[in-house]
Design a protein around this nucleic acid. Structure first.
Lengths: 127, 127
DNA sequence: TGACAATTACGAAGGTCTTCGTATATACTA
DNA sequence: TAGTATATACGAAGACCTTCGTAATTGTCA
């Protein structure tokens, strides 16, 4: 099976909720989702149907209310989107994106430390 | 004036060339651009007209062949796109994106070093 | 000035995205 | 079993994206 395409903005909004609450019915997803963004029930349903066709989610239709599950984990999807942005906007230079991200947003010392540890690890692998 | 929206994929492709060769006419841009992607002249023209409306580029129409210039620098645009992705896909957590980027793509020791220096600098500011 | 070349302006076709109304199917309950 | 509530299916509208053909404009030069 082909890997699904990157989600569109609206699809990503839905996926974020789906990742958070896990596999669920349209009703449950709509309930959560409409708290942050007023949306009709059938809109959510239609989106999920399209996302099923695209392979972004899978559907268990064994019971009356179908259960939807995100096909890719949040981490996998994030990795793909980052990778895509690196190619499209940075000509493949990952470290440029990293530098931009670090200098744009403030990070706590703990977060910086976490990054430093990963750096050490990456350099260790190399030798 | 409002800041321009993020460019669409096709617009970003054009912008990459425009950033590289600097302010130029439709003809020059089309010449460069069509080397990497076969495209009609009027397609490039139309895109630039739309991008002008959006504020992504500015136009000097004092001479017959208008001169187009990217409104934002490559760095500024990259910063916006990264910032946008951090919000949309990472819930605002910049370091998550950094970790993803670093672990997905290989970087040379020099690049890693560059990042390490920025880390040091960021920690220095904090104290 | 008249013809040709180069340039911009206009508009439309075909696709995707996003939203939702209406129709249809299914299960429960009185 | 008839009626009600709850699901899914279908289709369509309006916005935007991408591409390009054709028309109109402007400059050049013989």
């Amino acid at each position: 099976m082909k890997t699904p395409p990157n989600p569109t903005p609206a699809e990503l909004d839905l996926l974020r909720v789906l990742w958070k609450i896990g596999p669920c019915t349209v009703r449950e997803l709509h309930e959560q989702f409409s708290r942050e963004k007023q949306t009709g029930y059938t809109t959510v349903l239609k989106m999920l149907q399209i996302m099923t066709e695209k392979g972004l989610v899978t559907r268990d239709d064994s019971s009356r209310a179908h259960i939807y599950t995100a096909y890719n984990s949040e981490e996998t999807s994030q990795r793909k989107m980052v990778s895509d942005l690196i190619d499209r906007a940075f000509g493949g230079a990952a470290q440029k994106l990293v530098l931009q991200a670090l200098s744009t947003r403030k990070s706590s010392p703990e977060e910086l430390n976490e990054i430093r540890q990963l750096l050490n690890q990456l350099e260790g692998e190399r030798s």
